[in-house]
Design a protein around this nucleic acid. Structure first.
Length: 420
RNA sequence: GUGGGCGUAGCUCAGUUGGUUAGAGCACCAGGUUGUGGCCCUGGGGGUCGGGGGUUCAAUUCCCCUCGCUCACCCCA
């Protein structure tokens, strides 16, 4: 296999698909900006320590999924596996809090994780993310979730659901985790092999296991809600109320667990059963401690990120039989002899200078071949020029939509399209 | 890292109980009209049958190894 091709888990996005990306990106930009978010672009490669501290040393992402290498100066650098840590780094580095107490940012771009690819999962994938920084309030939580819900609807996606949960603060979660471990330890021998490991590494994950016996044990386990303080409960209730008022449909799922260490309190996932095993196409939550982990002061924040490849799968799903015909537009120049070819070269440039989509062959071709190509490439008009036209100083302009044609003076050609 | 499925033309796939020049549809190019597209007709180009090794008179077909793709586990967007 000496054929050159993309490496495992990295995919080309071809012209036939790029329309979906443009629609997604444009819709997100427009919507986010009406909610007061501004774009930020951070580097793809960062100091490895940013992610070790930000995402959490013991998370799976940091432990085995990062594209980490030493640069030529001997520094350990990492291709970003997610966006939030970088945005927070930029926020602290440039003291963005100085401009206003609240900072609203969004970003879009490629992320990298060394995993085995499968449906909806690539090693280079793309995320659009949002971070609302500087305030700890259920109003902020609700704002970003509502915004995400509106985005999904604007994109015409209907087969999805929103699941929410509260993970509690770090202080609330600690005793709860001990409680949970105590509960499951009594049934260690009944847990599946994976969950035996989870019991030590990440007991919350057991709640999310798909093995039947584990599910049963998880059902009997104490829930996080038992451990939440009144204040956290009230905040969660307020959050739900705001969603209700905005007409956002959700279900509370106490099994939602976040994979990155920095989440606390509100957590949410937008999921669809049309995505295969990786059903979440957007997820996020509150992360009040991230700034602390990065060595700054506390910056209470909430955000989410969208898996672009996954949400585009849903956009495609929605396209049913939408045999959207390409719009016919532009002018194809079809010279029939050598001298006309040169004249058309000039016309080609004139048209393009006027902003008209124009194209012609790079070598002399038969009229049939030129007509076929004009048709194949969805041009609306063909300019035909042979000896007859040239001597009269005109071209034959054919409308491929209805087959009608007329004679147009060469000098009038550009202005004809310029007006339209 | 683990497990299942699959690799034949640009794409979707037939095929051979091992046997001469490996097929179809679509796509592409050309001709049918020496100046007129889409439909139709005719013709053409294009394949190291993923790669390597083995068995055999003979391998795309059987065996082994390997690479790749894909789905799932783990985990995550």
């Amino acid at each position: 296999m000496t054929k050159l091709q993309t490496i495992t888990g990295m995919a080309d996005i071809l012209p036939e698909d790029i329309g979906f990306w443009h629609v997604l990106e444009k819709t997100a930009r427009t919507l986010f900006e009406t909610y007061g978010f501004e774009e930020i672009r951070t580097p793809i490669v960062e100091d490895t320590r940013l992610f070790q501290r930000g995402i959490g040393e013991n998370s799976q992402v940091v432990q085995k999924e990062m594209y980490t290498f030493d640069d030529k100066g001997g520094d350990s650098v990492t291709m970003r596996p997610e966006g939030t840590a970088s945005v927070m780094r930029a926020y602290l580095q440039h003291s963005l809090m100085a401009k206003d107490a609240i900072t609203k940012l969004y970003y879009m771009g490629p992320m990298f994780r060394y995993e085995r690819p499968q449906k909806g999962r690539l090693r280079q994938f793309h995320q659009i993310g949002v971070e609302l920084m500087g305030i700890d309030s259920p109003l902020a939580d609700a704002e970003v979730v509502i915004m995400m819900d509106r985005l999904i609807r604007t994109l015409g996606i209907s087969h999805y659901r929103l699941e929410i949960n509260s993970l509690g603060t770090l202080e609330e979660r600690k005793p709860y985790l001990e409680c949970l471990v105590k509960h499951f330890t009594r049934f260690t021998d009944k847990l599946c092999d994976d969950c035996k490991k989870r019991l030590e590494k990440n007991p919350l994950r057991i709640l999310d296991c798909k093995e039947e016996t584990c599910i049963k044990l998880a059902d009997e386990a104490p829930t996080i809600f038992d451990a939440l303080t009144e204040q956290t409960k009230e905040e969660f209730d307020k959050f739900k109320k705001l969603l209700d008022e905005a007409g956002v449909v959700y279900m509370v799922n106490p099994r939602i667990v976040r994979g990155l260490d920095y989440y606390e309190k509100t957590a949410f996932e937008f999921v669809s059963d049309k995505l295969g095993s990786q059903s979440a196409f957007s997820a996020g939550g509150r992360y009040n401690r991230l700034a602390l982990e990065l060595g700054g002061k506390e910056v209470p924040s909430v955000g989410f990120s969208i898996g672009c490849e996954r949400i585009i799968m849903l956009m495609k799903e929605q396209e049913f039989e939408t045999t959207m015909q390409a719009e016919l537009k532009g002018v194809y120049l079809a010279p029939l002899d050598e001298a006309s070819f040169d004249v058309c070269q000039g016309l080609l440039q004139n048209l393009r200078d006027e902003g008209v989509r124009a194209e012609m062959d790079y070598q002399k071709k038969s009229m049939k071949a030129q007509m076929r190509r004009a048709n194949k490439l969805d041009f609306r008009y063909v300019v035909i020029m042979g000896e007859v036209e040239r001597q009269k100083g005109i071209v034959t302009l054919k409308d491929l939509e209805n087959g009608e044609q007329e004679e147009v003076k060469i000098e009038d050609l550009c202005s004809k399209f310029n007006i339209q």
